[in-house]
Simulated assay, not measured.
Amino acid sequence: MMRTVELEALKDAAMTLSERDRAKLARDLVASLDGPAEHDVAEAWDIEICRRINEIESGKAELLDVDEVLARARARIRD
């Protein structure tokens, strides 16, 4: 485990990076907290997205007006 002094030194070094490099480092660090990406999950979502797009384009999907959906949701919350 890293000591506080080492952690502060690392943070100070990171703060000298350009804004772009700090943003990339931050993204990489946050992504590392999620663990390894699950290829099967990503592939399943790709398939589902394509299925939904096909349903919309073929006219099989019923598209709803956002204002109507929000009104229904608000009504359910009030009831």
Rank of each mutant, 00 (worst) to 15 (best):
M1F: 04
M1V: 09
R3M: 10
R3H: 01
R3I: 12
R3S: 12
T4K: 03
T4G: 02
V5S: 00
E8S: 07
E8Q: 14
A9E: 14
A9R: 15
A9D: 09
K11T: 12
K11G: 01
K11N: 02
D12V: 14
D12K: 13
D12G: 10
D12R: 15
D12C: 05
A13K: 15
T16G: 03
L17S: 04
L17Y: 03
L17D: 10
E19Q: 09
E19V: 13
E19C: 04
R20V: 12
R20A: 13
R22P: 03
R22A: 03
A23N: 14
A23T: 13
A23Q: 14
A23M: 02
K24H: 09
K24A: 13
L25E: 07
A26C: 07
A26L: 12
R27K: 13
R27I: 15
R27D: 09
D28L: 14
D28W: 15
L29R: 06
L29T: 05
L29D: 01
V30S: 00
V30W: 00
A31P: 09
A31D: 07
S32T: 14
S32G: 11
S32V: 09
L33H: 11
L33M: 11
L33Y: 12
D34C: 11
D34H: 03
G35S: 04
G35V: 15
P36G: 07
A37E: 11
E38L: 08
E38T: 14
H39K: 15
D40K: 12
D40C: 10
D40I: 15
D40H: 13
V41S: 01
A42L: 14
E43G: 05
A44M: 05
A44F: 03
W45A: 06
D46W: 06
D46H: 09
I47H: 00
E48M: 08
E48V: 06
I49N: 00
I49R: 04
C50F: 02
C50R: 08
C50D: 04
R51A: 06
R51K: 07
R51G: 02
R52F: 04
R52S: 07
R52E: 04
I53E: 00
I53K: 03
N54L: 02
E55F: 05
I56F: 00
I56C: 00
I56Y: 00
S58H: 01
S58I: 10
G59Y: 01
K60A: 11
K60V: 11
K60I: 10
A61L: 04
A61Q: 07
A61R: 07
E62R: 05
E62V: 13
E62H: 00
L63V: 10
L64F: 06
L64E: 08
L64K: 08
D65K: 10
D65N: 08
D65T: 02
D65A: 06
V66M: 13
V66C: 04
D67M: 05
D67K: 15
D67R: 14
E68R: 11
E68S: 06
E68C: 10
E68Q: 08
L70H: 08
L70F: 12
L70D: 11
A71W: 12
A71M: 08
A71K: 15
R72P: 02
A73D: 03
A73V: 09
A73S: 14
A75R: 12
A75I: 10
R76M: 11
R76T: 14
I77P: 00
R78M: 12
R78I: 14
R78L: 13
R78G: 07
D79T: 07
D79L: 14
